[in-house]
């Protein structure tokens, strides 16, 4: 399947068990209510866009989902079973992988060494057990070829890749190590148009393979074409989850860019002209 067809065919949400669900979760930092009574479901093979202004609670929510924070109230279920993660590693072991904006990629290390850090394939036994670089390079080359990045040398430093390629490598790594849920925090925010397209295409490919994706983005032009459903957060609470039909593009853009505030601002700015 080419990336273009994958992009244009939205997967229909089927009536299966949500791969991930939160029920009325709340999180407090001291006296600050970061999240209050937020519920959300995520189905296999869908892209859920998490929208909201700064301070709306998006970061807190994904940090709970990825095991960095624990909710103070409410339930967190993975494939119908309640869970409580004490570390990102535990979430990872349940197939929930988070790719942060800063990527957690080490620029001076090679692509292969980054890709396999912590999960290096080995060859040989006992004291002769060693990092199987040849196999690791072959896997990296093949995995990246799948997403249309043809690298000349998997041992070149990650720093030589473009931003979009780095994002894609980070996502490819999560997928390769068996992620069922991908949480992507602003994957396109620092990217140019072409590079962002590379990443969006790759998200569509991951969805086509049945992986569920939670996408956090500020950019409605990135969210709308790829998203199947949209959850909107405001001041720590959820305004609900909408499908594409329920939420016309213009309405979404208005909500995302803080429409009311912008209109107010426009009025204010008018005064200065006079």
């Amino acid at each position: 399947m080419t990336a273009e067809t994958a992009l244009s065919v939205p997967t229909s949400p089927t009536a299966t068990t949500p791969i991930l669900e939160v029920r009325r979760i709340s999180k407090y930092f001291g006296t600050v209510i970061a999240l209050k009574d937020v519920s959300m479901t995520l189905l296999p093979g869908e892209v859920m866009c998490l929208l909201g202004d700064n301070g709306a609670g998006k970061s807190t929510l994904i940090k709970i989902l990825s095991g960095v924070h624990q909710p103070d109230e409410g339930e967190y279920l993975v494939q119908g079973r309640p869970v409580r993660f004490n570390s990102p590693r535990e979430a990872l072991d349940h197939g929930i992988a988070t790719v942060y904006q800063d990527l957690a990629m080490i620029p001076l290390m090679s692509i292969t060494r980054n890709f396999f850090l912590g999960s290096e394939p080995t060859i040989g036994r006992g004291p002769f057990r060693r990092f199987d670089i040849r196999r690791a390079n072959a896997i990296v080359r093949a995995e990246l070829a799948k997403i249309g990045i043809d690298i000349r040398d998997p041992e070149q430093p990650v720093g030589t890749l473009s931003g979009g390629e780095r994002q894609s490598v980070a996502i490819a790594r999560a997928v390769y190590f068996g992620a069922q849920v991908l949480i992507l925090d602003e994957p396109t925010s620092a990217l140019g148009v072409k590079q962002a397209a590379t990443v969006l295409r790759f998200i569509a490919q991951a969805r086509a393979r049945g992986i569920a994706v939670i996408l956090i983005t500020h950019n409605p032009h990135h969210a709308y074409p790829i998203g199947d459903r949209f959850t909107i957060l405001k001041r720590g609470r959820t305004l609900g989850t909408f499908t594409k039909d329920e939420l016309p593009r213009e309405e979404m853009i208005r909500m995302m860019s803080g429409g009311e505030e912008l209109e107010q601002l426009e009025d204010e700015l008018q005064h200065y002209r006079a």
């Binding site: 990102p88 590693r89 990872l92 957690a104 990629m105 080490i106 620029p107 001076l108 290390m109 060494r113 396999f116 850090l117 912590g118 999960s119 290096e120 990092f131």
Partner: peptide, 18 residues
């Protein structure tokens, strides 16, 4: 590989199980 990872970004290394 872990030594490189730890020196490059200890948190990132910890998160992937190093």
């Amino acid at each position: 590989n872990w030594i490189f990872g730890i020196g490059g970004d200890a948190n990132a290394a910890r998160n992937v199980g190093v």
